[in-house]
Amino acid sequence: MTPAILADLQHRHAEPHRAWHNWARISAMLGMAEEVSHALADRPAFILAVMFHTAVFDRGVPDCAAQSIALLQRHLGRAMPPHMLARAEALIQAVLRQEPPDTEDPGLRADAALLLDLDNAPLGESAERYADYEAAIRHEFAHLPEERYRMGRIAALQMLLWRSRLYLTDRFYLDREKRARRNIEAMLDRLHGD
């Protein structure tokens, strides 16, 4: 990746409407990815997906993932092998849908599960860090009135609790699942109490 592309990504992630989906988050995800790099089927595609999955981000724009993929293609379409770009695109789509792709490729499914767990890692942080995450998410939805945001957030968090597992990989499940559920339940109590 060239310095110009990296600078463009950092510039995009510094947009003022981003409180959570910023470069600090990308850096944290890259750090976590490094810890589990031995488990990745396609490390370069995985790293590209981390770096580009929120390259275009605005809560008011419905097709940000498609625009992020288009940006990936514009920046790296001629420089990277087509199969690597296709895997990165599939991983970005998995984050958008919040589920691994329907594929016969076990490596792609495993990488997608790990990327989803990295994306959802903040749910299982300490209560204080989780509160910071929730505050940042609220900032990114600043365009919504409080009541509308509250109802939408309650629905989103409740849907998470209905999942049989928040984390798809055993590593994250064992380390974060219980704490994540406690964090979400506590936030739901607060939202219902407001």
Rank of each mutant, 00 (worst) to 15 (best):
M80R: 13
R59C: 04
Q98A: 11
Q73P: 06
A135I: 01
A110E: 09
A121K: 10
H139Y: 06
D132I: 04
A41L: 01
G124P: 00
A110N: 12
A45Y: 00
L123D: 02
R43C: 04
R59V: 08
L40S: 02
A127H: 11
E89H: 05
I137T: 04
F57D: 00
D119E: 12
R148N: 10
D117S: 08
Y133G: 02
E140I: 09
H143P: 03
P100T: 09
L76T: 08
S37T: 13
L108M: 05
I92A: 02
E89C: 05
A136T: 03
M84F: 01
E146M: 08
E89I: 03
D117E: 08
R74H: 14
R129T: 08
A55G: 06
S126I: 05
A70N: 05
A79V: 02
L48T: 10
H143A: 14
A142R: 15
R87G: 02
L72Y: 11
L123H: 00
S68Q: 07
A55K: 01
L71G: 11
F141I: 03
A33G: 07
A70C: 09
Q73C: 12
H53M: 07
P101R: 03
R43A: 15
E89Q: 14
V36R: 13
A110F: 00
H75C: 15
S126L: 05
A55F: 03
T103A: 14
D42I: 00
V95L: 14
A45Q: 05
E99H: 14
L71W: 11
I92G: 00
G124L: 02
E35L: 15
E99N: 06
I92S: 01
A90M: 09
N120K: 07
A28D: 12
V56G: 00
M51D: 08
L123N: 04
V56Y: 00
G31Y: 00
H75K: 12
M51K: 14
S27T: 10
P44G: 09
P145L: 07
E99K: 14
A86Q: 15
D42E: 13
F57L: 04
S37C: 13
L144N: 06
I137K: 03
P145N: 13
P44F: 00
A55S: 15
T103C: 12
D42L: 00
A66Q: 14
G77T: 08
P62L: 06
H75T: 07
V95W: 00
D105A: 12
P122I: 06
L72R: 12
P82E: 09
L71C: 11
A39P: 02
I69K: 06
F46G: 09
A28N: 12
H53E: 03
C64L: 04
A136C: 09
F46C: 11
P145Q: 11
D132L: 13
M51P: 07
A70D: 15
A28F: 02
D58A: 08
L85V: 06
E104D: 15
S37N: 11
L115Y: 10
E125A: 14
R59K: 06
M32C: 03
Q93E: 07
D102G: 10
E34Y: 10
R138C: 01
N120Y: 02
P81I: 02
A41I: 01
E104S: 13
L30V: 07
N120V: 01
H53W: 05
S68A: 13
